[in-house]
Design a protein around this nucleic acid. Structure first.
Lengths: 256, 256
DNA sequence: GCGGTAGTGTTCAAATCTGTTCACTTGCGT
DNA sequence: ACGCAAGTGAACAGATTTGAACACTACCGC
């Protein structure tokens, strides 16, 4: 077995089990402890796991801040952050806003903890956590109920029923794909249901989608392009996409 | 198991149950008391929990509580654990159970992750977390929505509405106080509403209450004593309390 | 108050893990 | 053929973790 293969396998083990032991890996791959240690050191240098006495553990997300998720997505994250900053400007103090589940909306949540008198409705546990940790007494956070998906969203009939009983001023929706034909889409059927309920409960719809989302089509449609009032995206969005979006939505906001 | 993994697991337990005992953890992880103490010390140094005589508690309540309260709650933990073990025996695989918020129900949750085909409804984020981390595909966990209280319970109209749409076989209810006159009580008005909704949605009501709860009266009544089908308590419950409870409820279960 | 029980921290030894150094093999290009 | 760089294994000294013993302390019931 080649070293890069072995390291990839180690990484899988760490991700799956949460932690590995040097001695176990050495026995399993039939190499010496030293070799495993060197593998772990290489992986730790790339920020893919954390070396500890006796082995290694997966890097725990959220413990400190955002320890390098993967080198390649750094740039995309800064675009998401920029989109979140711009979207935060669309929020008026004292209103009721909804945030769907997703990394971009989680980023937006961080920017909204300073908005006074805000009422926030979300089906994302991480998003609710952001506001809860801030602990502002003038803000109200409502978590919709439901069944938890692997991406920490709450979905299903309970979530939909909870959302139906509420009326929001504006929904910030993170999507997985958008195209002229399919509109806004997600790969998760249950999440699509929940998101449609959120759209129905909100006066206005703001979609947050970086340029990589254009042309991607998830299995399940959430809404037509024309249902969005505002789409916030980044400068790398190609001109044809801009033209199509401008045609369908009230306002297309591009962040630098 | 690696030391950092063990410490992370300890932290989870503390957050879920509000407190842990050294001896319990030592038995659970198969290490010596000293090792657990050193883990707790390391975590306490990082401000992640508070060490007390006999174990550790979540760092939250340290600011307002009089000294001694935390230690006392730790000492009662083994009683709560025994109550949880006994209550777990009342659960039939394949049924739909509800768990209210509270440290005792969190303890019970740990005992229920091994029950096959279980559907769990709860308004407690820590309880939902316990099942979510176990990640059993045959179990369904439904989190009711609502506004988050300082004790990580979800309450309010959204929670009540979500619960009303569901029908459960049995509810395990943790209470803060019980007495003949006031029945089962809690100090939190909003939680009382949610708990009443849970009672209405469930066929049977099992109340979990260690002996210290007898004679305590919270501001808000949840239910009459006679509304409970089963009460599970511990051996330190005084004879007069036993007599009164036996008179009102179908079954009084005392754990040794 | 006072004794008994349970919990705590210190100290020490054993076990285990770690990184460094050096030797060896293998594949590659000059 | 030769050098050489990368990868690996072995040995060893030093560091870390763990468990047990023991003297000390805190808490509870009486």
């Amino acid at each position: 077995m080649l070293a890069p293969q072995r390291q990839a396998a180690i990484l899988d083990r760490v991700r799956a089990a949460g932690g590995v032991r040097v001695s176990d890996l050495a026995a399993e791959f039939g190499v010496s402890d030293m070799t495993i240690r060197r593998d772990l050191e290489a992986l730790a240098d790339r920020g893919l796991l954390a070396k500890v006495h006796g082995g290694a553990t997966s890097v725990q997300p959220g413990s400190t801040d955002e320890p390098g998720f993967a080198a390649k997505s750094i740039r995309q994250r800064s675009e998401k952050a920029a989109i979140a900053v711009r979207a935060a400007q669309l929020v008026t103090p004292g209103t009721a806003v909804a945030l769907s589940a997703g990394t971009t909306t989680a980023e937006l949540a961080q920017r909204l903890v300073d908005v006074p008198e805000l009422t926030v409705v979300t089906n994302s546990i991480p998003v609710a956590d952001v506001f809860y940790r801030a602990g502002r007494p003038d803000q109200t956070v409502v978590l919709t109920g439901g069944v938890r998906t692997p991406s920490d969203a709450l979905v299903g009939p309970v979530a939909v029923a909870a959302i139906r009983s509420l009326h929001l001023d504006v929904l910030f929706l993170g999507v997985h794909g958008m195209s002229e034909r399919a509109g806004f889409t997600t790969p998760n059927l249950m999440e699509a249901d929940t998101n449609r309920a959120l759209i129905a409960a909100a006066e206005r719809l703001v979609v947050l989608a970086d340029h990589t989302k254009w042309g991607t089509v998830g299995i399940s449609s959430i809404a037509e392009l024309s249902e969005a009032h505002v789409v916030v995206s980044d400068a790398a969005l190609p001109p044809p996409a801009r033209a199509t979006l401008t045609e369908h939505v009230e306002e297309l906001v591009i962040v630098p």
